[in-house]
Design a protein around this nucleic acid. Structure first.
Lengths: 404, 404
DNA sequence: CCACGTTTGTTCGCGGTAGAGACAATATGT
DNA sequence: ACATATTGTCTCTACCGCGAACAAACGTGG
């Protein structure tokens, strides 16, 4: 049900067939490597001859390389093909309200060096200066990892991703901050900026080693704010201004507590880390100044206390869990995903809260199947946000296109 | 950002280029007719020779026909091309809780005969029998309109569109009703069933005579229930079970009034016609029995009273308007459409309620640009639901596909 | 060791398609 | 009548997948 007109429509030329098949082959190599030319021909349902031409071109372009020959029961042994991520790396940056994290990965998003971090400077100019300095430091430190193909930056807020401009990041206090230009200029590298929910969703879409990633899903990252990334038909939903997916500001109760966005009763105002901690302390933690012991307590600490028998801590978590489930109901009713991924600190307590979350979801889901939407937890150790930042750099070159 | 794997991926063959361009040409003819071969070549950016081959094949297939020659300032006059919808028609059916409407259109969704209707039988078996009889009657009555290419049916509820089964239509009291099979069997015609919001969105997407339809928009139909159709990237959003878009059951207040879906405080429970009328009468109109004068009052009547100076009627409308705007905020934040279309009886009072709707929207929209999302009213005289039903039949043959 | 079968990867002719340009047909203006 | 402009068709070329044949690599069994 797609009309021809609205999109930047490209008429097929003589080279289009090749272009399409080149991309398909590239993606098959990515998701199935190691793989031989003959394997590709079987996967694609074409002749080996056609695949050979495609692959040899990919090799010539340096995108793919031939590795060792594989084993075969009978006959000639195949030569395995791999995406060439040797001597290339990507810098992934995750900006969070208190600290900013940096990781170096290969083109496939595989971690290559340990994660480093530094305090997040609230002044954009100073922040950019500090970030550039850090990235430059990391790159000289890891010269052995090869040429840097680009920098991916994840921001907790709304991003105009084409311009690389942060429209609004309430938890950072940023509004209309142009991040890409100064970073790109200072480093001389391509820079990609994206909202954290969308980037996490991209990482999830992208991390399909077995080629079995669902093509309709929602990624929800619960931390200082609530980020949501929607994937439909294998594509990130961006909307008109790239701010689609802001379910964090869909209300649970329009007469509810005030939210940082200016409205009231947003889902985020019920389930963010700050909301959970505020519930525990019985006071609004946005009101400063805070006693040191209050300000220092994290959700991880709260979970530890709950596990240690602190009933108030457990109650705060379960309350968040219930609201999380109720809000999930909105997401499931509106988007109807095949799966929901949830990341964030609170997932460490999933064994404590799962039943409550699911009950909340079932309470609002329109159909039993929607209420039973599978939920998958993404633990923080997988660095979903940093993987998402890395994917920003590499994914576009594998992306497909829409036709006719 | 689309991976190669998850979708039914088709490798490009020798004929793919032609297939793509054929579809592009067909859609250009649809959206720009009358149009000449030379016009098409300019629009598509290809040679006239290539277009000639495409067009002649389309003519041979009976999809397109050559009409009269056009006028030109200088040089040879062009021969105009049109989509061939002569001697072909489509039956569009709109099932609503009280009455069911039938319209005959051509392949482009243009009305060919007056709309007829009959009372909606609540028992599915009896309803199908009555509908089939009506459609058969209409078809013999309008034999001159040519062969019927199919029947499109719009339902106020969740539909498993591939199976043609109504999963749940609360306002009809239907659950797991297989509509397609019996209708198709009785008439011997292809039958397409779809949710009303999605069908209206399709009609809007489809009715682009000028080829300027937005590719990211939301259609909201406010009547007995609240139907929402989402179009992203020029494609209807369906989700995993084709129930995506049920924003009607996203809450404004989880502690709010009970909704027919079983949950509380759904948007629909605030803005449906029944909710508006209930507000006017100060009583829940779902509680039967109702006095005859109460049961007979429609939203159209209410609007008339408001215009006549009935302050209570105006207050009820404005209250609905405010909730409509607040809920629009959720839609806009979640989807970020370039435009919102609103249909339904209440649009007849748009001049009275627009400001209130916009204020509600601006109150919850995250950014000024989101709050200023253009709203377009679709008046009932355009029969958006019936046009949607008609589009169900013809649209798929023009639809594109996704590649690589 | 060598013939044979099996599998991989390459090569070559064929058919289908768009690109480029020439050409005939058609219409207007001088 | 002639120049000019536009449309639609035709021809030739380049590109690419299809199909089949072929060379290369490898194991098996006589």
């Amino acid at each position: 049900m797609r009309p021809a007109h609205p999109r930047p429509l490209r008429v097929a030329t003589r080279g289009t067939t090749r272009e399409i098949n080149r991309r398909i082959a590239l993606n098959f190599i990515r998701t199935n490597q190691p793989v031989s030319r003959a394997d590709l021909a079987r996967l694609m349902g074409t002749r080996r001859g056609a695949v050979s031409l495609l692959v040899n071109q990919l090799i010539e372009d340096g995108v793919v390389f031939e590795g060792a020959t594989g084993e075969a029961r009978r006959g000639r042994k195949p030569t395995f093909l791999y995406i060439d991520s040797r001597k290339r790396c990507v810098v992934a940056v995750d900006i969070r309200p208190t600290r900013t994290f940096i990781m170096v990965t290969d083109l496939m998003g595989q971690q290559l060096a340990s994660v480093t971090s530094f305090p997040t400077e609230r002044d954009p100019k100073k922040f950019v200066a500090a970030l550039v300095k850090r990235i430059a430091g990391v790159l000289v430190e890891h010269k052995d990892l090869g040429r840097c193909e680009g920098v991916g930056v994840v921001v907790p807020g709304m991003v105009e991703s084409e311009a690389g401009c942060v429209i609004l990041a309430p938890n950072l206090g940023w509004r209309n901050v142009d991040l890409r230009a100064p970073i790109a200029a200072a480093l001389g590298l391509p820079v990609h900026i994206e909202n954290s929910g969308k980037a996490c969703a991209l990482a999830q879409l992208w991390s399909t080693r077995d080629g079995k990633a669902p093509s309709n899903f929602v990624y929800i990252t619960v931390s200082d704010g609530l980020g949501v990334g929607i994937v439909l038909g294998g594509e990130i939903v961006r909307g008109q201004h790239n701010i689609a997916g802001e379910f964090g500001h869909v209300p649970l109760n329009i007469d509810g507590p005030r939210c940082g966005c200016g409205a009231s009763g947003c889902w985020e105002a019920y389930v963010s880390n700050l909301a959970t901690l505020s519930r525990y302390f019985g006071r609004d933690l946005r009101e400063r100044p805070l006693p040191a012991d209050v300000a220092a307590l994290t959700v991880d600490d709260l979970i530890a206390r709950a596990r240690g028998g602190d009933a108030k801590a457990l109650a705060a978590l379960l309350s968040t869990a219930r609201y999380l489930g109720l809000g999930l109901g909105s997401v499931v009713n509106a988007i109807d995903p095949s799966r929901v991924y949830i990341g964030g600190e609170i997932t460490a307590a999933w064994d404590l809260i799962e039943a409550t979350v699911r009950a909340g979801l079932a309470e609002r889901a329109l159909t039993p199947s929607a209420g039973a939407t599978p939920i998958t937890i993404v633990p923080p150790e997988q660095y979903p946000r940093l993987r998402g930042a890395a994917a920003l750099v590499a994914a576009p070159s594998f992306a497909g296109r829409v036709v006719a």
